[in-house]
């Protein structure tokens, strides 16, 4: 069963009709090629109309699409010789974060990413992609190892947020996230972060301090979920659509705010429509970024990383009275 989003219904329906006509043409004597052609032109136009002007809430729906590619999907296409490693060495292994080493075009790298499932069973195993502290500590352990062996780090961000649970609090969720933010600032190897789905608050940011931050076109990055914001602001989580707009959480919004380096284009309708094409676009972006960053000496790299974050924020300076 394919998941159909409300706003793309006209496209899906028209496409189904075209398929039907094609079937009729094939199976019977009636030639409908003319009609099909016409309808295909109409489909092309309709797709452009709908996918060309996506509202923030539409993008939220695409970012949350059940079939949206996950970290492991991209790993299998982008890298070779991937070996996943487990555990934080303090408490356990958190399946909502995957980490390991692989080759990216003959260069050894470390990969760390949030991992959600695509069905209920997988999601229960992956805790819906919401990490506990041990997930962040596993991530940090791999980052430190990357630094030791001088491997660039690539992170994939895809989480609704750090898990809001009792055990997570008892084991220091705050400390785990805070420590990652601080430690990532000082890592002497290049860090490239790509938001591939939802970038939910501190739980996303804990894998998101780097030299380049990219977002897939329909991914989101937010301090609070649109539903959460709507509940707080208007006491009504039904107003999520309005909140999604106000919060400025889409990739184009973040580019405009100067928070991310670039938006990586998605295939028409979203990454799930064409994983190969999407992976190629990510590949190109990472390749170019690594080539640029590789030229920098460590001190410059770290200074630029600091400057990058230091300039984020908007405020006014008034004359002291």
């Amino acid at each position: 069963m394919k998941q159909v989003l409300a706003f793309e219904k006209p496209v899906i329906e028209l496409r189904e009709k075209i398929d039907e006509l094609k079937k009729i043409t094939q199976e019977s004597e009636i030639d409908l090629t003319e009609e099909i052609k016409k309808m295909e032109t109409r489909l092309g136009k309709l797709e452009k109309d709908i996918y060309g002007k996506l509202e923030p809430w539409d993008r939220v729906q695409i970012a949350r699409h059940a079939e949206r590619p996950t970290t492991l999907d991209y790993i299998s296409i982008l890298f070779t010789n991937f070996i996943e490693f487990h555990g934080d060495r303090y408490y356990g292994d958190d399946a909502s974060i995957v980490a390991g080493i692989a080759k990216f075009k003959d260069v050894p790298i470390t990969i760390i990413g949030h991992q959600r499932g695509k069905n209920t069973k997988e999601n229960i195993y992956r805790n819906f992609g919401s990490p506990h502290p041990e997930g962040y500590r596993k991530a940090l352990r791999h980052m430190k190892q990357a630094e030791k062996f001088n491997r660039p780090i690539i992170t994939f961000i895809d989480t609704k947020g750090a898990y809001p649970g009792k055990a997570a609090e008892e084991r220091g969720q705050s400390e785990a996230i805070a420590k990652n933010l601080m430690e990532m600032a000082g890592l002497t190897v290049p860090i490239i972060c790509v938001v591939i789905g939802e970038g939910g608050s501190g739980g996303a940011l804990a894998l998101g301090v780097g030299d380049r931050i990219y977002m897939l076109e329909n991914s989101t990055y937010s301090v609070i979920s649109p539903e959460g914001a709507a509940a707080l602001l208007w006491k009504d989580s039904q107003q999520a659509e309005r909140a999604a707009k106000s919060l400025k959480i889409t990739a184009p919004d973040l580019k405009e705010l100067g928070i991310i380096d670039d938006v990586i284009e998605e295939p028409m309708g979203g990454a799930h429509r064409d994983l190969e094409t999407q992976a190629k676009a990510i590949d190109k972006t990472i390749t170019e970024a690594l080539a640029e960053i590789k030229k920098l000496d460590v001190e410059t790299l770290l200074d630029l990383r600091f400057d990058k974050y230091k300039k984020i924020g908007q405020f006014e300076e008034i004359n002291p009275t």
Binding site: L181, M182, L205, I249, L257, R305, Q314
Partner: peptide, 20 residues
């Protein structure tokens, strides 16, 4: 919340300053 992801990024901004 009213400053959206700009406020989220203050977490990393302050943390990087602390690292240094």
């Amino acid at each position: 919340m009213q400053e959206g992801v700009l406020s989220l990024m203050q977490m990393s901004k302050t943390s990087i300053a602390i690292q240094r």
